[in-house]
Design a protein around this nucleic acid. Structure first.
Lengths: 192, 192
DNA sequence: CCAGAACTCTAGCACCGCTAGCCAATCTGC
DNA sequence: GCAGATTGGCTAGCGGTGCTAGAGTTCTGG
């Protein structure tokens, strides 16, 4: 019985190790450096063990993405908590969002842009992402006006996401980044 | 002399054929189906011929992207021309933008999300994309207020881009799409 | 103690982007 | 008109990818 327990514990540890290795490799060298062979070498097991834990490489990336959601939620919550008034709260959370994307591009990509098998439109959203979204929604609540809060939040979020992704791909002038953020915040915090 | 001319003409035709094949394949089966082997088979030449026209697969994708920019510019111009008043013009161009992204996802990806070697932040922007951007800017001009028009346009554009990409990746509720577009337009067309 | 189950590994498949080097057709100068 | 240089396309292959079949080893329960 106890042996069984140890086995399961070791298995769980190994799964954590896989996710951690994937995340570290992606953050330090980008996702294109994350191959199943390198991952296997990193955890000091052979390739096929990866497939006894995850359905495929996509599933590993999805696991990393879910972890990343938790980090994002923490950052956003901190930004919201630090704000002194509603409008500054929106500015702060927007800055925090952009900073997260810039500081952890690989993680951000895993969550939002890579075609990973995470369909969190409406059904099985990972709870970590729901928390991040809720932080945004709470911050925006005073400015939603007549619009549905969730829809309003989705729209603002899309604005942030667009700014972040277009800039990273070199489609926007980098030096205007803060000005664009300010415009977005300004337009979404007008009352009436 | 004339032989030389024929040669160059045939070469140019072949280059067009490569781009067309890449585009069609991407639009019908997605970019993951566009491999150099399939492309070569499509144009009925061997693989290495592709590399005598383009530096690599990325360059082929970039060429498709540039073509796509022209299409996008046409759609946006038509939407702007069809509008009766400034506010409706913004709504119309936003709808046209979203429709383009939905109707031609592969093309849209090539232009905006795939890591293709098109650095059109500020320097060598393809003229086709500049046209599309200018359409947006002209439409938004009445609503920029004190903000720099280019920066303002970039921000609005990012909003559209975020809506489009997040929805396609299943990160947004599909049935709220039009409502989100309306919110974005509303927030960017308030005067004062 | 041993048969069977559970687990991990080696080896390999089919595919990818890309390129070296050969070979035939063409052009050039005599 | 013809030898030699040049061009242009081809075959074949390199080193990589995600993934898996099947062999071998270790552990477990009777």
């Amino acid at each position: 019985m106890s042996i069984q327990a140890r086995r399961e514990r070791e298995r769980a540890e190994r799964e954590r190790a896989i996710i951690a290795a994937a995340r570290e490799l992606a953050e330090s060298e980008g996702w294109e450096a994350v191959t199943t062979r390198r991952l296997a070498a990193e955890i000091e097991y052979s390739q096929p063990v990866l497939y006894s834990h995850f359905k495929g490489k996509d599933a590993i990336m999805a696991a990393v993405a879910v972890e990343g959601c938790a980090d994002l939620a923490v950052d956003l919550a901190a930004a919201r908590a630090a704000a002194t008034d509603p409008r500054r709260a929106v500015a702060g959370i927007a800055t925090a969002y952009a900073a997260f994307a810039e500081r952890r591009p690989a993680l951000y990509d895993a969550i939002f842009t890579l075609p990973v098998d995470l369909s969190f439109g409406t059904k099985e959203t990972p709870v970590e992402l729901a928390r991040a979204f809720a932080e945004l929604a709470q911050t925006l609540r005073p400015f939603a006006g007549d619009d549905d809060l969730e829809t309003f939040t989705e729209t603002f979020w899309s604005g942030l996401h667009g700014l972040v992704t277009l800039m990273r791909n070199g489609r926007l002038r980098r030096d205007e980044h803060e000005r664009r953020l300010a415009i977005l915040v300004d337009r979404f915090t007008r009352l009436g």
